[in-house]
Amino acid sequence: MRVVGFIGPSGTGKSHRSVWVARERDIECIIDDGILIKGARIIAGTSAKKEKTKIASIKRALFTDDAHANEMKRAFEIYKPESVLVLGTSDGMVDAIVKRLGLPEVSERIYIQDVATEFEIKQALATRREQGKHVIPVPTFEIKKDFSGYFLDPLQVFRRKGKGRFQLVGEKSVVRPTFSYMGNYTISDYAIYQIVEHVTSKIEGVSRISRFRAENHIDGIYIEMDLILIYGYLIRPLLKEVQQKVAEEVERLTALNIQRLDVTAKGLVVDQKRIPSAL
């Protein structure tokens, strides 16, 4: 296996450029902050950006946990990649990761100064310092299940092909981890309820919400709600429409994953103004 190190201080833009570096050098996999990435998928590991403190994040990135390191080793046995790009803040960190995971010695080292200008590095550092934004080199839909409740932004990466021409290299996600900024944020159940109420009020066939409950879990949010429907509408298709539209809007506005959304038709009302004309 060919092992390549990609080295640069924290916040200088390594993750941002890792997809491009891997593509240019025909490298199959990327190890970045505790996760193993193949193509546009996370195939093993847990992101260090999920940790609540900087120290815990560093430990996660160095695979100090045996279960975490063993998961990565099993993934290498299963997928058998021919090459891997290992990201680190120093030569020592890259060597420590390689040793911890039982990989061959690093055959090539690439430094952030080799692929980014001084201005680009300063710009990346300013973004990290002022906004606490971190990049994960996979599409947002791929990390959504692991980053429920985090601020997520999709980011497309292009490579210059010629004058005025660019080629799409890949997609990445921008997150703002807990350890990267002061304070916490909370989205109350009532705020979620208001979003749901607004969505359902615009769906024909729904009279009102009679009961609503939301529970936050590590993997996402669980919602239960009872609806009073208007007599004359097909109940099953109506409930499916409610599920779909509520899930889309809550996830769009809050970045929370809806792991379960139970909708119950609890009653019917006759509304002469809103009964379907076919009746």
Rank of each mutant, 00 (worst) to 15 (best):
Q194A: 06
I192Y: 10
D146C: 07
Q167R: 14
G170K: 06
A126C: 05
G132W: 12
V169Q: 08
A116W: 05
D146N: 12
L168K: 15
T200S: 02
V157Y: 01
L152Q: 05
Y181G: 01
V169D: 14
G132F: 12
V138T: 12
A124D: 13
K202C: 02
V196S: 05
Y190R: 15
E120Y: 05
G205I: 00
N184R: 12
L125W: 03
H198R: 14
H198T: 12
Q131A: 11
D153G: 05
G149V: 06
Q123F: 12
S148A: 14
P137E: 02
T186M: 10
I143D: 05
K145I: 11
T200P: 03
R129C: 02
S180K: 04
T186L: 14
T117A: 06
G164R: 03
V196H: 05
T140S: 15
H198D: 14
G162M: 07
M182L: 14
V175Q: 01
S148V: 08
I203P: 13
Q123A: 10
R109E: 03
E197S: 09
V138C: 08
R165K: 15
L155D: 00
V135L: 09
L152K: 04
E118W: 07
R160P: 01
E142R: 04
Q123R: 14
I192R: 05
A116G: 04
P137W: 06
I195M: 06
I192M: 14
K202H: 13
R109C: 02
I110W: 02
V135T: 13
K202A: 11
F179L: 02
Q131S: 03
Q167K: 15
D189Y: 09
T140R: 08
T117M: 07
F151Q: 08
P139G: 14
F179V: 00
D153A: 13
K145G: 06
F179W: 15
P154I: 09
H198Y: 13
G170A: 15
V115N: 07
E108K: 02
S180A: 15
K133E: 10
Y185H: 04
Q167E: 15
E171M: 15
Y111W: 11
S188Y: 07
R159V: 03
S180C: 15
I112C: 03
S107R: 01
S188P: 08
Q156L: 11
P154K: 10
T117F: 08
T127H: 03
Q123I: 00
I136S: 06
T127D: 00
P177S: 11
Q194Y: 08
F158Q: 03
F158G: 11
G183S: 10
V199K: 04
Y181E: 01
G205A: 03
I203E: 07
P177M: 14
T178L: 15
K122M: 01
V157A: 08
K144D: 11
R160V: 15
K163I: 09
E197C: 03
Q167L: 11
Q131C: 03
V169T: 10
G205M: 02
R159E: 14
F179H: 14
H198L: 08
K172P: 01
I195T: 07
G205N: 02
E171I: 13
F141V: 11
D114S: 04
Y193D: 01
A124C: 12
I136E: 10
E130V: 05
I143A: 10
E197Q: 09
Y193N: 01
S148D: 10
G205E: 00
R129P: 00
G132V: 10
K122V: 00
A124W: 07
